[in-house]
């Protein structure tokens, strides 16, 4: 059975990339290179170090922004989830942020902070943070009352209840928020590179478009999507290893 799944995954990749190849050969558009041309460009750029330099540039605001969002987002989320006052005060902001197209703030961020790293980090943060905060807060608020009561009965301090009961209980949802946040962070990082100043992967995309080197452009886009997906899968693996119990379903009955 596992074989069938693997086989079908492979088949589905072949089908998609095959369709891409065929569409490129027709060609459906002058700006639509074949799959093989794009892969060729990808390996050429990996080979000559273009990719490495580009990603060093791209990953900087992404990593910094995601780290800030994760740290601050979980902290604020815990705070909002644990205190009804902070919930009242902060959660409307994040609810609005979650629904709103925050990308519209980018021109303003550029005016205020220039076109440097700060602006890009902020773009990643505003995209990634709301969902992390809201998920954390919601999960913390939904910690089963009976578990907290059990903690109190066995003399857990408030801090111990948060560390040993509330956070582990909330961790699956916090992780889900983190995955959504990071995915939004990738969107923000690329958006920043395309909109603010072309650097890193955004630069490859913009530049190769301007000189009509479409294989390189598609290769760069392909690589960033691949990276995002791989990274999110990795995060899932880390979660499984780190929080064994999360996989194990809840027992409260």
């Amino acid at each position: 059975m596992a074989n069938r799944a693997l086989y079908l995954k492979f088949l589905s990749a072949v089908l998609l990339f095959g369709a891409w190849e065929v569409a490129g050969r027709i060609p459906v558009s002058f700006a639509f290179p074949t799959f093989l041309e794009s892969m060729g460009a990808l390996f050429r750029m990996i080979g000559d170090g273009t990719m490495a330099t580009a990603y060093a540039e791209t990953l900087r605001p992404l990593v910094v922004g995601v780290a800030i969002s994760a740290f601050l987002g979980i902290a604020i989320g815990l705070w909002v989830g644990l205190s009804s006052f902070f919930e009242w005060l902060f959660s409307p902001i994040f609810i609005v942020m979650q629904a709103a197209p925050l990308a519209a703030l980018i021109p303003l961020l550029v005016l205020a902070y220039g076109i440097g790293l700060t602006s890009k980090v902020l773009v990643v943060c505003i995209m990634a943070m709301p969902v992390i905060v809201l998920n954390t807060a919601g999960a913390v608020r939904n910690t089963p009352e009976s578990m907290k009561e059990m903690g109190k009965a066995f003399l857990a301090t408030d801090l111990a209840i948060i560390l040993k009961i509330v956070i582990p209980a909330a961790s699956p949802v916090i992780f889900a928020g983190l995955r959504l946040g990071i995915s939004a962070g990738f969107i923000g990082a690329i958006l920043a590179e395309l909109k603010i100043t072309p650097t890193g992967v955004g630069d490859i995309i913009t530049y190769s478009r301007s000189i009509a080197d479409y294989p390189s452009m598609y290769a760069a886009i392909f690589s960033i999507i691949l990276l995002a997906v791989l990274f999110l899968n990795l995060l899932e693996k880390i979660e499984t290893v780190l929080f064994k119990g999360n996989q194990r379903g809840y027992v409260s009955d």
Partner: peptide, 30 residues
């Protein structure tokens, strides 16, 4: 709550992410 009393909960109130031994040791850990 105090150390002179221990509670057995009607709905068990176990920590689902913790193994049996960690659940049992929870009171002592605290």
């Amino acid at each position: 709550p105090g150390p002179d009393r221990a509670f057995v909960f009607q709905d068990f109130a176990l920590l689902p992410w913790a193994s049996v031994i960690r659940n049992v040791a929870f009171g002592l850990e605290m």
